[in-house]
Structure formats: C-alpha cells, structure tokens
Design a protein around this nucleic acid. Structure first.
Lengths: 195, 195
DNA sequence: TGTTTTTATGACCAATCGGTCATATATTTG
DNA sequence: CAAATATATGACCGATTGGTCATAAAAACA
C-alpha cells in the first residue's frame, strides 16, 4: 500500500465514526482535520470534496457492520442458530457494533429525502441483509428445521424492521429494555415456526 | 391571538416540515426566512435562537402526528379496530401523515447522540404511543376480544418497533413493499391473539 | 543518486452560518 | 387620538463553512 493509499484509509477510519454519530451534514471538514491531525490541503489531496469523503465513510461503516456481523454468524451451524446470532448481534444498541449506532438507521433517515447516492447505498445493504436472512430461513425449511409455511422473505422483512425499530427505541430511551423485548419476541416467533 | 403570537405560529408551521425533512443541523435560519418571506430580525423577535425554533418545530411535528393519529383512531369501536387503524395510519411511508416522514424516526436518529432535549421529546412521544397501544390491548383482553395471554406492553413494543423499521425500509427503497409486509405480519399476529 | 511525482502544509478565498442592533413601522393600550 | 409598546427590517458582525493554491517536503522511480 502506497503512502497515499495509507493516508486515505487513515482519514476514512477516523472520519467514519464522526459521520455516523453527528450525521453527514453536521460533520465539517475541520472535524475530520481535528480527528486526523492533518491539514486541510492534505484532506483534499485524497478526496476531491466533502461528499466523496462522506460516501467513503458511509461505505466504511457498512463494511465494519458487515465484517463484525459475518464474524458473529461464523460459528452458527443450524439455520436457527444463524437467526438467533443475527438477533443477538443487534441486541445491545447502547453498545452498538458500529460507533454511533446502526449506520443503516443513521444514514438512511438522513439521506432518504436529501441524498440519493447514500440512500441507495443504504438500500443495497438492507437488501443484502434481507437476502441473508431469507436465505437462512429457506435453508432451514429444506433441512426440516422450520415449518414449510414459514415465509422466508416476509419474516426476514418483519425481523429486520423490528430490529431497526427496536434499535431506535433503545437509543432514544438510553437503555436496552425495548430491544430486549424485541429480541424475546423475535426468538419466540422463530421457535413457533420451528419443528 | 396577538400579532406576535400569530407570526410565531406562522413561522413554526413553515419551519416544521423543513426541519423534519432536512434535519435540525442541516436547516439554516435562511431556509426559514425564505419559506416565511420574513426578515432575519423578525425571526429573532419570536425565537431567541435557532435551537428554540428547532424545538418548537419538533413539538409542532409531533402535534400534527398526534392530531392526525387521534383522528384516524376516532371511528374505531373495538380494541382490534384501534390496533388495525393505528397500523393503517402508518402504512404508507411514501405519503406519510407528516411531511418529511415520521418525526420520531427523523429526530430520534439525529438527536440520540447530539441533542438530549430533542431526544427526550422523542422518547416521551414514543412512551405515549406505547401507552396507547398497550392500553388498547389491555382493554381488548378485558372485553374478551383478545386472548388473556396476549402481552400488552410487549406487543406494543414489538408493533411500534416494526412500524418504525418498516417506515425506514420503505422510505429508503422508495416504495411501500416492505411496509405492506409489516402491516400484513402485524395484523396476522393480532388475529392470532384474537378470540 | 538524482529526478520526477506525489503528498503535506497553511495562508487564503468567497459564501454562508447564527446572531445583533439601530431604525422604522405597526399594533396595542390609555 | 396620542403615547407606549411590540414587531419588522436589513445592514452588519465575527466565526465557520467547503474549497483552492503556491510552496515545501517526502516518497517513488530511474
């Protein structure tokens, strides 16, 4: 990795949690300068403008989320274990896997009316998550783990929505109480559809 | 209502959808000046600073949400009808009851890490919504509409979370497909707990 | 090693930010 | 109606915004 690539990556890593916490619009280039201890001119050697840097930071947050998620799912053998591990991964919004909370929630709500590029990025990661979940359920049905009328895509959607909503509720209330209920409810629903 | 009160209210009404759409940090006083066609000095006669105006705008968005929701629930007779009406009220995120989408989602995600005052406002409205839902379920159990083991507070939380998460998913994807699945899932769960 | 290319610096830019204030105009009150 | 008060205006303020650029230092290449 060349010096330039190294610096670029360094900036992204420092910028990502700031964008995810404060939001894109509310984060200034001087915030990033302060975090990286780099000069303004140096920032613009690696990123032609703030939006490009913000997009890179969004991507980085998604990548961290995905990497940690894959790691959390790695040990799961059965399909039910995959679903439970997925739920557990999101079960502690006061100590979220990505600094600033779920980037899908943060960037999704900021971008939906104002930033089509980021909006589409979020949309794609959600689609990807949905595919993972519905795929696990389909496999579970084939394996006779789940009842044949367990609807993969519908439950994937319901589960994802509930996790994101629970994340919001817990972050706003400042504790995990609501998320715990969501976790319990989801696991119950999965058990009800298990054989 | 005095002239001052009238103008103050006028500013709030024009500002509320802008704050809800762009976010608090990304909305400037000149945005409000443009929307109201009022001078800068006039704004500061009625609001001592931007934060006070933003808080008033947040309150106004919540009030609109609540008023429209009460209206949507008004005709419901049975407890099940209340729950279904509540679900239907949130069922079309591409044409949301409040301009800019659900203010709980928008302000909640922006404020959770940055603005304790707004965060608490959102928290209170969520609590209020939870109370409405769990109250309706409790009443339904008493009326023998719902099974006695239908857990009011837990279902209220799960339902609220799913609606907010579905709202996010539909707004990011630009269509109501995900929300329709959420609606269907929630109504099924309610039916399963009905007598 | 010497040359070329890349990277880092910080002064500088116009535009915009939130906010103030003297002044002028309405509105309210007596 | 007249005096007192409240409201509206827009020029103005310092600070900050995103962004540029000549210059210098460092890395990459020959």
């Amino acid at each position: 990795m060349s010096k330039g690539e190294e610096t670029r990556q360094f900036i992204i890593e420092k910028a990502a949690p700031i964008f995810n916490t404060k939001g894109i619009a509310a984060t200034s280039m001087s915030d990033i300068m302060e975090a990286t201890k780099l000069s303004k001119g140096s920032m613009y050697v690696h990123f032609e403008n703030k939006e490009v840097l913000a997009c890179a930071a969004v991507d980085h947050n998604m990548k961290i989320l995905n990497t940690k998620l894959q790691n959390a799912l790695a040990k799961s053998k059965t399909s039910k274990e995959v679903l439970f591990a997925y739920i557990d991964f999101f079960s502690d919004p006061t100590h979220p896997p990505v600094i600033g909370g779920c980037p899908l929630l943060n960037f999704g709500t900021e971008a939906d009316d104002t930033n089509p590029i980021v909006k589409e990025k979020v949309n794609n990661v959600i689609k990807q998550g949905q595919k993972l979940l519905s795929g696990a359920i389909e496999k579970g049905i084939e394996n006779k783990e789940f009842k044949p009328d367990f609807n993969p895509s519908e439950f994937a959607t319901a589960m994802f929505a509930m996790l994101e909503g629970g994340h919001l509720m817990s972050r706003v209330s400042g504790n995990n109480d609501k998320m715990k209920i969501v976790v319990k409810t989801l696991k119950n629903l999965i058990d009800q559809n298990s054989l």
